[in-house]
Simulated scan of single mutants.
Amino acid sequence: MITIEELDPTSVDAGVAAHYGDPAREQRTLAGSVGLVDRGNRGVLAITGPDRLGWLHSITTQHLSALAPMTGTELLVLSPHGHVEHHAAVADDGTTTWLDTEPGRAPALLDFLQRMRFLMRVEPADVTADWAILSLVGPDTTRALSALGVGPLAAPSVVAVPGPKFAAGSVPARSTSQYALAALPSGGLVRRMPYGADLLVPRASVPTLMESVDVPLAGLWAFEAIRVASGRPRLGFDTDHKTLPAEAGWLGAAVHLEKGCYRGQETIARVHNLGRPPRRLVLLHLDGITTDELPAVGTPVVSAEGRPVGVIGTAVRHYELGLVALALVKQNVPADAVLRVGESTAAIDPSPFAG
Rank of each mutant, 00 (worst) to 15 (best):
V255D: 05
G188H: 11
A183V: 08
T208M: 12
A269V: 14
R276M: 13
N273H: 15
G187A: 09
V201I: 15
V271E: 12
R234C: 02
G264A: 03
R203H: 10
E266P: 01
V206D: 09
L189S: 06
A253W: 02
M210L: 14
L244Q: 08
A204N: 08
A225M: 02
L189G: 03
H272I: 07
R234M: 07
A222E: 07
A222L: 06
G260D: 13
G187H: 10
D240G: 06
G260S: 03
S186Q: 14
P202L: 13
Q178D: 10
L217E: 05
R234Y: 04
L181Q: 04
G188E: 13
E258F: 04
P233I: 08
G188W: 11
R203S: 12
G231L: 04
T208H: 13
L200F: 09
A246K: 02
K259Y: 08
C261V: 02
P245Y: 10
H256F: 01
D238T: 03
T267A: 15
L274P: 01
R203M: 11
A197R: 07
A254E: 06
A197D: 06
L200H: 11
A254W: 02
G236C: 02
H272F: 09
D238P: 03
S205T: 15
R192K: 14
E258A: 01
V190T: 14
F237W: 10
A183L: 14
R263P: 01
W221P: 01
P202E: 15
M193Q: 15
G219M: 03
G249F: 07
S177K: 04
N273R: 15
A204F: 06
K259W: 11
A253N: 05
P202M: 11
G264C: 07
T243G: 04
M210I: 06
V255P: 02
L257F: 02
G196W: 03
G187S: 10
S212D: 11
L209Y: 06
S230H: 15
S212K: 14
S186N: 00
A182T: 06
F237G: 00
A197G: 03
R270W: 12
D198N: 09
A246P: 04
E211F: 00
S205R: 13
G260L: 04
L217T: 04
G275H: 12
M210Q: 14
K259H: 07
N273M: 10
Q265W: 09
I226W: 06
T243S: 15
T208N: 13
L251R: 11
G252Y: 08
P207I: 12
R203K: 15
R270M: 12
G252V: 07
G231R: 09
